[in-house]
């Protein structure tokens, strides 16, 4: 059964179409929404969490319509917004107990201890949040979201601005939650993370979904390997079986290929045949970045100045 379904989900901000007829179906999995800043990821999450009304189309979470059955939706979900919001004058524990009580969970104190323990914050729980690092704050927000047992967890850029170690930790927790049967719907613009941890991803650009599938599947669609050759001389046309010339950049040629080892040999032969001097030749596996470039084009930052990020930076110092 699908946990999240959207049909033609659309949202306008005045004339700007931030989300453009999006169809999604998400089951029990870690589902990642990928895209550059301003692609419409947060807007989708806000509609799914009943914070924004769709301009058109509809969306259901756990079988409940996000507009008509908003309260039922809220009972089934937890949501960690992109912008961190914690009361720094309260302790970590107080921040979590507040949410436990607002969710109306029985034994709020015990559940709080559990959640804090789960996220490795038990020993610092009685300190003011003012003294927490960025990673701890994010984990504290996860603890707030996990004091009740949601069926769906929405995470909007959960690892934004965190260091590598903190990001790993967040992902470990997310993975453990999925093992327990929770659906996790998250957004990120870190392709490598999505590649490693998401069961399925959707790539979104300017409000439109341009690709959807498992990371492996999407990478397979464009070829499993990327071969980069740095040469001098004027390259001619290439017609090698199973190899596609992706782009020519100065004296760098980038190819997509199904099998890296075979392609490497074939390409090197062809380059020599064309009389080009090869300076370097390398092969690597395709990444989601490559998929993104293929499906969308250059990931230039199309968003205007993003006030919320600026504020976030200021607060994190």
């Amino acid at each position: 059964m699908s946990v999240i379904v959207t049909e033609n989900l659309t949202r306008y901000y005045k004339d700007l179409c931030a989300v453009d007829h999006v169809d999604l179906e998400v089951g029990r999995e870690i589902f990642g929404l990928l895209g550059p800043n301003g692609a419409g990821k947060s807007t989708i999450v806000k509609m799914l969490t009943t914070l924004l009304r769709p301009s058109d189309g509809r969306a259901c979470v756990c079988g409940h319509d996000v507009v008509k059955d908003a309260v039922r939706v809220r009972e089934s979900i937890s949501y960690v917004p992109q912008e961190m919001a914690l009361d720094i004058k309260l302790t970590g524990r107080e921040n979590v107990v507040l949410f436990a009580r607002l969710y109306g969970v029985p034994n709020a104190r015990d559940r709080t201890d559990e959640a804090l323990g789960l996220l490795g914050l038990a020993d610092r729980a009685d300190e003011l949040v003012r003294g927490y690092s960025g990673g701890m704050r994010r984990r504290l927000e996860l603890a707030q979201a996990l004091v009740h047992e949601p069926r769906v967890l929405f995470l909007d850029e959960p690892t934004l601005g965190l260091d590598v170690a903190a990001r790993e930790k967040i992902w470990e927790h997310v993975h453990a939650l999925k093992e327990k049967g929770m659906t996790i719907f998250m957004t990120t613009h870190y392709m490598d993370e999505a590649d490693r941890y998401c069961d399925r991803v959707a790539i979104i650009d300017r409000g439109k979904i341009s690709a959807i599938g498992t990371p492996q599947g999407l990478k397979g669609e464009i070829g499993r390997s990327v071969v980069t050759a740095s040469v001098s001389g004027e390259p001619g046309a290439f017609s090698l079986e199973g190899v596609r010339l992706l782009k020519v950049d100065d004296h760098e040629l980038v190819f997509m290929a199904g099998d890296g080892a075979d392609a490497l040999a074939a390409i090197s032969q062809e380059l020599k045949r064309q009389g080009l001097e090869i300076h370097s030749l390398s092969v690597r596996e395709t990444s989601l970045d490559d998929v993104f470039l293929q499906k969308v084009g250059t990931p230039e930052d199309r968003s205007a100045f993003d006030g919320s990020k600026y504020r976030l930076m200021l607060r994190r110092r």
Binding site: K46, T49, T50, L51, V71, R74, E75, I77, Y79, P81, E83, A85, F99, L102, Y103, G104, Q144
Partner: peptide, 8 residues
């Protein structure tokens, strides 16, 4: 953002 998404 957080409070409005709560079931209370």
């Amino acid at each position: 953002n957080k409070f409005l998404a709560l079931p209370s």
